[in-house]
Amino acid sequence: MRQKTKTIQDIARIAGVSTATVSRALSAPAQVSESTRERVMLAVRQTGYQVNHTARNLRRQRSGSILALVPNLANPFFSQILSGLAEVVAAEGYGLLIADTQTDPDPAARLFSYLDNRMADGLVLFDGRLADQRLAARPRVPVILACEWGDPALPSVRVNNAEGAALAVRHLVANGHRAIGLITGPAGNVLTESRLDGTRKAMTDAGLALRPDWTFPGDFTLAAGVDAAQRWMALDDRPTAVLCASDEMACGFIGALQHAGHSVPDAVSVIGFDDIEVCGHLTPALTTIRQPRKEIGERAAELLVGMIAAQSLACTSQMIDVELIPRDSVRRLA
């Protein structure tokens, strides 16, 4: 004989509370006493009751989903961030939707269509191009900026990029390097500017200047690192160390030099930024600045879920520290 499906009324009867109390215990446990919450959860376990998330979301006019907009899903930098994000939102009963904004001809238009149609209960933006004043000015669901930032009216979780670049410069200087080059990120990008500011400040503090002919344009990709290697090899007067604004560019730079017969770090020391998974497996292993990527995703999710629960569009932004990871790609000069 088929067992009858248990209802919230059954849970209330067994626990000796009202259906409203059962609802609060399941959806907002902090609003009920511990003893009441324990009675409700015991009744849930005894009956095997399962919350109908679809019906609950319809009543609340929610989708039950969180949307992450990522500028390049092929970039391994985002893997651990999305993992941390997914773990937290899943534990809170939300599904995670991910969209790549890189090939979208008008990513802002797509973003506003998500907002207008309430296709998600909250957004996590990894693409700083979308964080403009239009987003802060119009009615919307809660939004968190992660990694990049734009309009200061939007809450964000980000790392101290300027300090990360400064850490890299200080490490090179401590190892005897005075001729330091830089592969930048894309022009106008907020991460590019922040890391460039940190580089310049640390070099000024060390009595050095960033030479224009030792500053190579990049866009955070492997190809940009290869192009910078070609430019480095074409110089008569070369820097003894190169700071790369991303690990992908550092990988491209090292690979192109090695194919051309130049040894790293004997010919040039190299330091990256991000600490993606491959860094420790390269030859030589890459010295880099570690961003705690899983923590970035976890914190962004926690802030966003809290905003949704509070029905608020605001929260306090967070800054996360970075860490220098010394490996074999930087040598000490005599």
Results as ranks from 00 to 15, higher is better:
G181F: 03
P139M: 11
G150M: 09
G185C: 07
N160A: 14
A137T: 15
R140L: 11
R138L: 14
A166W: 00
H171R: 14
D132P: 05
A136C: 12
R158Q: 14
L167H: 10
G150L: 02
N160T: 12
A179T: 11
A166T: 10
L135K: 10
R140Y: 03
E148T: 14
N160R: 15
A174I: 07
D151M: 06
R140W: 06
L145G: 00
C147L: 12
V141K: 03
E163D: 13
P152A: 04
R140E: 06
A165S: 15
Q133L: 05
A179E: 15
R170T: 07
H177W: 12
L172P: 02
A174P: 11
L135F: 01
P152K: 08
H171T: 07
R158T: 10
G176V: 12
C147S: 05
P152G: 11
V169G: 01
P155T: 01
D151G: 02
G164S: 08
R170G: 09
L167T: 11
T184F: 02
A153T: 06
I144C: 03
V141Y: 02
G150C: 03
W149Y: 15
N160H: 13
L154D: 09
G181A: 07
V173W: 12
H171I: 10
G185L: 01
I183C: 04
A136V: 04
E163G: 06
N160W: 09
H171C: 10
I183F: 03
E148G: 08
A162F: 02
R178C: 12
G185V: 00
R170Q: 15
G185P: 00
W149L: 05
I144V: 07
A174D: 14
V169C: 12
V169W: 03
R178W: 10
A166Y: 05
R138M: 13
R178V: 08
L145D: 04
L182H: 07
L145S: 04
G181D: 06
E148R: 08
A137F: 04
E163L: 13
A174F: 03
V141G: 00
V173S: 07
R158K: 09
E163S: 11
N161H: 13
P155Q: 09
A168I: 05
V159C: 14
W149N: 06
T184E: 02
L154H: 07
R134F: 10
R178Y: 10
P152Q: 09
A146S: 14
H171L: 13
P152R: 06
T184R: 05
S156N: 11
G176C: 13
N175I: 02
V157H: 00
R134Y: 08
I144F: 13
V141T: 09
P152E: 08
R138I: 12
I144A: 04
W149R: 10
V159E: 07
P152W: 03
E163T: 10
A162C: 05
S156L: 10
A168L: 09
A179R: 15
V169R: 00
